[in-house]
């Protein structure tokens, strides 16, 4: 029987979920972590290069992470229901080519898609592999607003 790591599928885009960014939530994130005026105040944002209240790019990325973690949890529950061991996810060493290609405005709904593009065994950490995933975020008009290529560890001997 194949292991959970072996069952990770390459090249198939999956929608991991959608998130609507409310004005209140944008300001709350910004007031804690990114209090630039175009993330904090509608009038200031209208006078800025953004033209309207826009989410911090780190908020756009963090909201994606929440949907990814929820997807991992659903995948694990479904694997267990099939009598398979779930993928055991580890930390991430980092990412490349993160693009905030358009602002995320208050009221926008961003749909995130994840596509595993590669997986390999870790040379330095026996029992672990590294999965490369392209993540894309699109607003309700179909415009690309977010992209990144992320790496993450996953167990190779977990089942």
């Amino acid at each position: 029987m194949s292991t959970a790591f072996e069952r990770i599928t390459i090249g198939v885009p999956r929608i991991i979920g959608a998130h609507t960014f409310t004005a209140g939530e944008i300001k709350r994130f910004a007031s804690a972590w990114d209090p630039q005026r175009f993330h904090m105040d509608e009038a200031e944002a209208e006078a800025s290069s953004f033209g309207a209240l826009a989410a911090s790019g780190w908020h756009t990325a963090s909201a994606m992470m929440r949907l990814l973690v929820d997807t991992f949890a659903r995948d694990a529950a479904e694997a267990l229901a099939r009598g398979e061991k779930p993928v055991v996810h580890g930390p991430s060493p980092g990412f490349e080519a993160l693009k905030w290609s358009r602002p995320v405005f208050a009221g926008d709904t961003i749909t995130y898609t994840a596509t595993v593009t590669a997986k390999r065994l870790s040379k330095s950490r026996p029992g672990w592999g590294i999965v490369t995933t392209d993540i894309a975020g699109t607003n309700q008009k179909g415009e690309a607003v977010f992209a990144m290529t992320a790496q993450a560890f996953a167990r190779t001997d977990g089942g």
Partner: peptide
């Protein structure tokens, strides 16, 4: 990001960022 705001961006003519080339 908060440190970058407090130490530089809030007193700058920052227009935003197109992304992160890489992060580790």
């Amino acid at each position: 990001m908060r440190a970058l705001c407090d130490g530089l961006l809030l007193d700058s003519a920052c227009l935003g960022s197109p992304g992160i080339d890489f992060l580790r």
